[in-house]
Nucleic acid binder design. Structure first.
Lengths: 140, 140
DNA sequence: TTGCTCCTCACGTCACGTGAGGTGGC
DNA sequence: TTGCTCCTCACGTCACGTGAGGTGGC
């Protein structure tokens, strides 16, 4: 993960370029653990709109920040259309508040996930009971 | 849930027909809380193959039993293709053992559901934290 | 004639996966 | 020439939802 070249040899050699002005699709895909197809799909769905250099996509730091919020919202279980709406309304100037989620959206999502959670818990209980039964049958 | 007609008036009137020899797609759909589309879809996927009377589907008690197993397996989180394979191998003569699940299938499914469970738990924890933050911000 | 149940296409949804076929620069 | 990254279609997957248009019997 560290620079393959000597770290201190060329300090201050390129102060013109802060860190990295733009990102390619491959760079962002690697960073966020997504596929190129996923990045292109999000663009098709209107979630990100990177600039173009010819036909090649060019992502800015703003695009990267947007993508970061998309990934976080996905981990919270929101759908892409919900995320799109949330990004459209909230964070007009980039709120420091994680995402631009409203209290009702959060409450709805909690209820939704809790329902899933209980369904999974029921299934797990039955599967464990079934496993026990098979183990006993095997022994006897 | 009880018979709308007098229960004792016509006892033994039709001993030839046990209860109901066949079922229509609508009857099974209502009984299992599925749509007609779902029943037809399962047939298209090769999970059930009801007989036909003209173009109308006719389900036997065996079809109904199969459907019951499909519904149970779905509740346990198995996919339709997994269910299809399980039904193809196991229960050749209708085992009393719930479904024809092998110990490894059960173990895999438990692992799968536990992974989902932990992802949901993580998401719920973050959402609750976020909700708390918003509530405090509202008060202050 | 209206109402109910049943039928067959067949496109839409969700979030991508997976080739196919082609380009540009080291 | 090979290898890597990037691109645009476009069909496939999963489990159905949702009309459209038509039939049969009370």
């Amino acid at each position: 993960m560290t620079d393959q070249h000597g770290a201190n040899t060329v300090a201050f050699s390129q102060p013109v370029v802060p860190a990295r002005r733009y990102f390619t699709i491959g760079q962002l895909a690697r960073e966020f653990g997504l596929t190129l197809r996923t990045l292109r799909f999000y663009e098709d769905r209107g979630l990100i709109s990177p600039a173009r250099e010819g036909s090649t996509r060019i992502y800015t730091h703003r695009d990267r920040a947007r993508l970061s919020m998309i990934v976080k919202a996905k981990m919270l279980g929101f759908t892409l259309s919900e995320i799109k709406e949330t990004l459209a309304e909230g964070s007009p100037a980039g709120e420091p508040n994680g995402l631009g989620l409203s209290p009702s959206q959060i409450a709805d999502q909690i209820a939704h996930l809790e329902k899933q959670q209980s369904e999974i818990a029921t299934a797990l209980a039955e599967l464990n009971a079934l496993r026990m039964k098979l183990l006993k049958a095997r022994v006897v």
